[in-house]
């Protein structure tokens, strides 16, 4: 039950994009086409899940036992950067079609604050191992959901008559605001 609550909270209530404001750059940058947005969401979910596992191991097996919490920022960012590289090489060898789909989005993920945010938030909330994994998967799905919805709306927005200065990023942010408003309606789901 507790796990389900974490999962639902990560997807709907405390959505990474619309509540924590993490991963705004890809959210605005890669949300112009629906299929690109889907691939980006898939890549982020994938890396988030692995990051959740690895960052938990580093935090609980290395940093905490030796009182090295102050190295958290440095070690997390280095681990994430090398992890993305590894994942990229791994996918290229194992599954070329998947690599074709995710290819150009993987390197972009290194600088995606959602990944770093996930590692830090999971450490901050003191989740145990299973909870961390659920949190990682849920957050990834939440990100995918938000970016797909955004891409769907933006494909239609191309045909709309938007006032000149608001074209592009301006209207995208206002749409995101309205989406965040709609998502805040989920907050009553779990006490």
């Amino acid at each position: 039950m507790e796990l389900l609550a974490i999962f639902i909270t990560a997807i709907f209530i405390k959505n990474f994009v619309l509540f924590y404001f993490l991963g705004i750059c890809p959210f605005l940058g890669v949300s112009k086409k629906l299929d690109a947005a889907f691939s980006m969401g898939l890549a982020v979910t994938f890396v988030m899940t692995i990051t959740a596992v690895v960052s938990w191991m580093i935090n609980h097996w290395v940093l905490l036992p030796y009182n090295l919490e102050y190295l958290q920022i440095v070690s997390f960012i280095l681990v994430i950067a090398s992890l993305v590289q590894l994942v990229e090489m791994f996918i290229r060898k194992i599954s070329p079609p998947l690599y074709q789909a995710l290819g150009i989005y993987l390197p972009l993920i290194t600088t995606n604050c959602a990944i770093m945010g996930l590692a830090l938030l999971a450490a901050l909330k003191n989740y145990n191992f299973i909870e961390t994994v659920i949190f990682g998967v849920g957050s990834g799905i939440g990100f995918t959901l938000a970016i797909i919805l955004m891409a769907g709306i933006r494909e239609h927005l191309d045909l709309a008559d938007v006032p000149g200065p608001l074209k592009g990023a301006g209207i995208a942010l206002i749409v995101a605001g309205i989406m965040a408003l709609a998502f805040s309606g989920f907050s009553g789901m779990i006490k």
Binding site: I171, L173, G177
Partner: peptide
């Protein structure tokens, strides 16, 4: 709340361009 942040920044971006 979060929605206010998005909407305010969106309008400000438009103003700057204007």
């Amino acid at each position: 709340l979060p929605p206010g942040a998005f909407i305010t920044l969106g309008i400000l971006l438009g103003l700057v361009i204007l």
